[in-house]
Simulated assay, not measured.
Amino acid sequence: MAIGSFKGLYTFLDIEEIYGIDTSCLRKKVARGKFVIDEDIKKIGTTWIITEQAMVKNFGILKFEEYKDKNLKEKSQMKKINSKKFNKNKKSDSMNEKEEKVNDSWSSGVVKGLELKSFSF
């Protein structure tokens, strides 16, 4: 685990989602000394944080792997959706650019020199 990184750290709410274990049961395990404080788990404010290694050691790898796979699929789908949105916006921008070029007298070849415009203030 890298210093300053949250990768590999999970909250008790994450464990509840992954394994279906109520957070009160987890707090009881802490009170009974089932985890090594400041090595397996740490309390930050009112939130308990657990390392991935301690989580897998105490609750198993199967449900955790399913959870990771599910999250990867969801992230992949979100990237596809965002990519489609970006491409739609990109196309509309290029349409505006084409319209601007057509309306520009310089690029259309109508004006063969400098085009001066007057402004009123």
Rank of each mutant, 00 (worst) to 15 (best):
M1E: 07
M1R: 06
A2P: 01
G4C: 11
G4E: 13
G4R: 13
F6P: 00
F6N: 14
K7N: 10
K7M: 09
G8A: 08
G8K: 06
T11P: 01
T11E: 02
L13C: 02
I15K: 01
E16F: 04
E16S: 14
E17F: 07
I18Q: 01
Y19D: 01
G20M: 07
G20C: 08
I21G: 02
I21P: 00
T23D: 10
S24C: 11
S24R: 15
C25P: 02
L26Y: 06
R27I: 15
K29Q: 13
K29A: 11
V30G: 05
A31D: 12
A31K: 14
R32Q: 14
G33A: 12
F35Q: 05
I37P: 04
D40F: 05
D40T: 12
I41A: 09
K43D: 05
G45F: 01
G45E: 03
T46R: 12
T47A: 01
W48N: 01
W48L: 01
I49L: 14
I49V: 09
T51W: 02
T51M: 01
E52H: 02
V56W: 02
V56T: 03
N58M: 14
F59C: 03
G60V: 03
K63L: 15
F64I: 04
K70H: 07
K70W: 03
N71A: 11
K75G: 01
K75Y: 04
K75R: 14
S76G: 08
Q77A: 14
K79W: 04
K79M: 08
K79N: 05
K80Q: 02
N82L: 15
K84N: 04
K84D: 04
F86T: 04
N89D: 08
S92C: 03
D93M: 13
M95P: 00
K98C: 05
E100F: 08
E100S: 12
K101L: 14
K101D: 09
N103L: 15
D104W: 08
D104I: 04
W106T: 10
G109I: 08
V110E: 15
V110Q: 12
V111M: 06
K112A: 07
G113Y: 04
G113A: 15
L114N: 13
F119I: 10
F119G: 03
S120Q: 12
